[in-house]
Design a protein around this nucleic acid. Structure first.
Lengths: 341, 341
DNA sequence: CTGTTAGCGCATTCAT
DNA sequence: ATGAATGCGCTAACAG
């Protein structure tokens, strides 16, 4: 027996007053007498009145909701960003609608459209690896819906963005490997059109060049995804080549873990034969054996800052004239999968 | 320059027809002539018309949205359940609002209220570890909003529930440990009021009893959370006691990983000195060294099934008279952190 | 085939 | 201090 939720009109009727009076009373308007206020409050409680936010939103044109699009929710990186976002927006009274694109452009496009139809007030987006054009984001902007891009940049799409200095992270990792005597450093790289992966690749190359180590194409392998299985496959291919690497800089920790498994299978030692460095510094990384050297990223801060910028736009509803660009600093965490200095 | 989104009325005006005609045309109603349909469609495209789902929802009293409340989004378990849910509900045209309670009763309560105010059509809930009374869920039921509880049961709250047979999982793990010669089997248990943890504890006890092994209270340790750090602390306490365990059955993989780290620190061997078994079978578990024996749970299926049941309720809007109770079967995955048979 | 009317639940004029 | 009227954007019942 689903009861119809009681409305402001219901309260008004049972009290023989106007709906507008009830509305004002519930909002504690100063132009309402103490008596009617109390009567309304009491009746509201009695009838278990719950305001219908749909009606409020329709009228106010604001849903107090922000849409978050991430490639996948299961990864440590993105789920932690979301936690940061959550904690930030809660205080401002905003709700979150979290969606995953599964790295698919089509899904991403569809999600954005759906959320726009449902009138979310703003977007926090990290594009799918398959996303190469940004017309769907342009549309949002032309509808006046603020968008903040995080972690993965959208080249050619001008917007607020909060990124991590992936180049610097990779560079730190590489300099450390070189300093500890590695010379044949392999890189297991991620999808080519992700800016994060491009920048890590740049860091890899630039560090080699700085130390006059020639870039050897046979030391570079690519993965489509970011799983340990991908890392295993790439490492197998790498080790099958003529001359072995003495270090592997992996695009992330999961891939690095896969690499470690294969290297151990082949009877090689870490880090004596091959050093390993990952990226992300996942919580588990220090528990592997050997513990994984990795580039830590300020993940939680990434979420906080991105949402803070978005909140600012929503608060001041002037038009955005200039976009913010924030670059957060990563930090190499040295553990035992790489040689000591 | 935020343009006001164009509405059905805008289209109607610029075409000099009635709004209802436009509405019908957009819905491809058979009672509209080909010509007007085409004209409407064309104008809609030209004006970049996007239906306002808030208005639609207000009218239809259905938002096509379901609320998902999990204790935390960062865990492998819950984020994977969500993936299952996502894949299921997408086909039915439902959206997901995902929220985390952070294991707090107050947050859980608040989230549920907020989502209810925003008129989600149904709920998928796994209660926080701090949640001990379910009046907030009772309220949902009395408002006629369907609720499906998953993984963690709500004792005393009658609802559809989709659970994992934690007792059986624990029992499988324990029988295996006993079969491989372990006798002083410790258990690192989770929060006492979580049904999942209770049932694992029951499995632990019952297996011991079946094999006439006395239950030794000094072999039982408790953790508040589910992190590796919690596991480390608990294991330290365990190893500080007079007589050491020859096996540890941990409440989950993260805790088991923490246990392994401490055991290795103490110079003990796994599994020769102490066998370890976890619960969850996280993707990384096979990559630890030694690889972790663990109880696998049908996580994705859990999400699919829970949401399927919810979808059924939403489709047939008769009242729910009887609640479904589904118990999914876990499975022990034997690896190298436990002795061979 | 199309237009008119009404109403979803609410907040905000404008009256009184 | 309160009520009546209006409209957010849309759909549906009821005319014609």
């Amino acid at each position: 027996m689903k009861k119809r939720p009681s409305t402001i009109t219901d309260i008004a009727k049972s009290l023989n007053i106007a709906a507008s009076t009830v509305s004002r009373a519930l909002h504690d308007s100063p132009s309402i007498s103490k008596e009617t206020k109390q009567a309304v409050m009491k009746m509201a409680k009695q009838m278990d009145y719950q305001p219908n936010m749909l009606a409020v939103s329709l009228l106010s044109k604001r849903t107090k909701t922000i849409g978050v699009i991430v490639p996948e929710i299961t990864s440590y990186f993105f789920s932690t960003v979301i936690s940061g976002v959550q904690d930030m927006v809660n205080e401002a009274g905003y709700k979150l609608v979290i969606c995953q694109s599964n790295e698919s452009f089509e899904e991403e496009q569809k999600l954005i459209e759906t959320l726009a139809l449902n009138r979310v007030d703003g977007f926090l987006i990290s594009p799918a690896s398959k996303t190469m054009k940004f017309t769907h984001l342009e549309r949002l902007r032309s509808s006046g819906i603020p968008v903040v891009v995080f972690d993965r940049d959208c080249p050619g799409f001008d917007a607020d963005r909060v990124l991590v200095d992936d180049f610097d992270g990779a560079f730190q990792a590489m300099e450390y490997l070189i300093k500890t005597g590695c010379r044949r450093i392999a890189h297991i790289a991620g999808p080519k059109n992700l800016t994060t992966c491009q920048h890590r690749m740049d860091g890899y190359i630039k560090a080699l060049q700085k130390h006059q180590i020639p870039v050897d194409e046979s030391l570079i392998e690519w993965v489509e995804g970011f799983t340990s299985e991908d890392g295993e496959e790439a490492t197998k291919r790498l080790l099958d080549r003529r001359s072995r690497p003495d270090a592997i800089f992996a695009i992330n920790d999961a891939v690095a873990i896969g690499a470690m498994a294969i290297i151990r299978d082949k009877g090689l030692r870490i880090p004596e034969d091959i050093s390993i460095v990952g990226f992300d510094d996942e919580p588990y990384s220090k528990y592997f054996h050997p513990s994984l050297t990795s580039v830590w990223q300020p993940v939680y801060e990434l979420g906080m800052l991105s949402s803070k910028i978005l909140m600012n736009h929503l608060a001041s509803d002037l038009d955005v004239t200039q976009f913010r660009y924030e670059l957060l600093k990563p930090e190499l965490i040295v553990r035992n999968s790489s040689r000591p200095v």
